[in-house]
């Protein structure tokens, strides 16, 4: 089984938006487009989920920074 179910379009689009916001600051037209996209509750839910995950990944030290990486064996 793959990590993610096929047809999870809202999640994939939320990740698209996240990456776009990460790489550039959205201009007015792009922000309007994002706001339109977020009008759907399913989109909003996916966006919030992606945003939270993005923050959590930002809290994990890089492999170079970690002096004591979490172990799989305990």
């Amino acid at each position: 089984m793959t990590d993610i179910e096929c047809g999870d379009a809202a999640w994939n689009q939320a990740v698209d938006w996240l990456m776009r916001e990460h790489e550039e600051s959205l201009d007015d037209a792009a922000r309007e487009a994002l706001i339109d996209w977020l009008a759907s509750p399913a989109h909003r839910k996916a966006y919030e989920q992606a945003r939270t995950l993005w923050l959590v990944t930002g809290l994990v030290p890089t492999s170079d920074e970690q002096s004591d990486p979490p172990s799989d064996d305990d």
Binding site: R31, V60, P61, Q66, S67, D68
Partner: peptide
């Protein structure tokens, strides 16, 4: 959870990440 070799760089990055998140969120 973590032991970090360069905590100063880590905490600055964390604050920056959160500030960016708050800023983006406030624009929406």
């Amino acid at each position: 959870v973590f032991s970090v070799k360069e905590p100063a760089a880590y905490v600055f990055r964390m604050v920056r990440n959160l500030a960016i998140d708050h800023y983006r969120r406030s624009t929406l």
